[in-house]
Amino acid sequence: MTYCLPLKICQLASLWLLAIAAPAISQAPDRNVGSIEHLPALKGDYFSLFSKEVGRNYHIYVRLPEGYDDNPDQRYPVVYLLDGDSTFPMLAPLHLFMHYDDQIPEAILVGIAYGGFEPGVNMRHIDFRTVMDDGTPGGAPQFLSMLENELLPRIDDKFRADSTRRIIVGQSRGGSAVLQAAWLKPGLFWGHVASNPGREPDTKLLFGMDRAPPEKKRSGHLIVASGSRDRDYLRGTALEWRDTVAARDDFPWDTSFIDIPGGTHAADLGNVYRAAMKTMFAQTTESKTEPQN
């Protein structure tokens, strides 16, 4: 036998049940909380890249320029940040502020990250070396092939990138990788910024730049930056590079040495980045800051 309450009572019961359920619904986790979309200075895109060249996965973070969607015909320089786990969240907002204050052109910033600092996850000690300490081959050739054949084409295809204005930035051992990229792939990037580069056994005078340079039409920039308070052996090598390499005019780039007074090994990367970008885009920024008649 079925029993039916009057319609009004049923409606009241339904409202009561909804009232009980409402707190539980409101407490459901918001999956967008903590999203990078809530950080506009970092906002852009993310994708996971499994590299066939290297045989490992990378996490790729992309920061898009302010006004990117409003200027569909504009193409932008692209800055590739090695060690993107830490350099991307540091330098992406800085670039925005430099655009405001220094008239540096807006750019697409690409952070190449490993997903952690733990050994076995972060493989910079292999990717940024041509020869390991025991004499076995390092992973630098495969890493550079990943950049050339997998990552750069994907960025060029997906975003409005100016492929003639690619810049690679690296710190410490990543700085050595920047010099390797310049030497082994001299036409791949327009700008190269090596901040306090490491001096591994395979690096010699900051990757053999005391030898004959690679053949390439002269264009772009190669910048080595050194903090005056960097580790003694790294500082000494950087100053030797300044005195013996930076002044040469037979390289396929404009070579520059940037001194960071009081700068330490890692904490002054932001100062290096700002000085390097102002050096590379000097003509652009000067034209924008000239007084108008």
Rank of each mutant, 00 (worst) to 15 (best):
V33F: 11
E106P: 06
E148Y: 03
R229D: 07
L239M: 15
D210C: 00
S256Y: 09
L82A: 04
L7P: 10
G208M: 08
P252R: 11
Y76F: 10
A177R: 01
M277W: 02
P40C: 09
M1V: 15
S51V: 06
L49A: 14
G170S: 11
I126K: 12
Q103L: 13
T237P: 04
K185R: 15
F281C: 07
D45T: 13
G116T: 11
T164D: 03
T2G: 00
K288S: 06
V169F: 11
F251W: 15
L151I: 02
N196Q: 11
G115Y: 13
M1H: 15
H59V: 01
S219Q: 09
E106T: 14
R129M: 14
H95R: 04
L188W: 04
R154L: 12
A276G: 04
Y68L: 01
D249A: 14
L147A: 09
I25S: 06
S48A: 13
I36V: 12
P137L: 13
T285Q: 12
H265T: 03
R165H: 14
M1F: 15
A238T: 02
V272W: 00
L82T: 05
R199N: 08
T284Y: 07
D69H: 13
D230H: 02
Y3R: 13
V224K: 02
I167A: 01
L81Y: 06
L91T: 09
S14H: 07
S145I: 15
F97W: 13
D250P: 01
H59C: 05
G67H: 04
P119W: 11
M146T: 03
I223A: 03
R199A: 03
G111T: 03
L94R: 12
E290P: 00
I104P: 00
G138S: 09
T136F: 02
Y114I: 06
Q74L: 12
K43V: 07
R31A: 14
Y3L: 11
A212G: 01
E66N: 09
A177L: 06
G208F: 05
P105Y: 08
K217N: 13
H95S: 08
Y61F: 15
L239C: 05
L17Y: 14
S228V: 00
I126T: 08
I108H: 04
E118K: 15
L188F: 07
V54S: 01
A113F: 08
N57F: 10
G138W: 10
A212V: 07
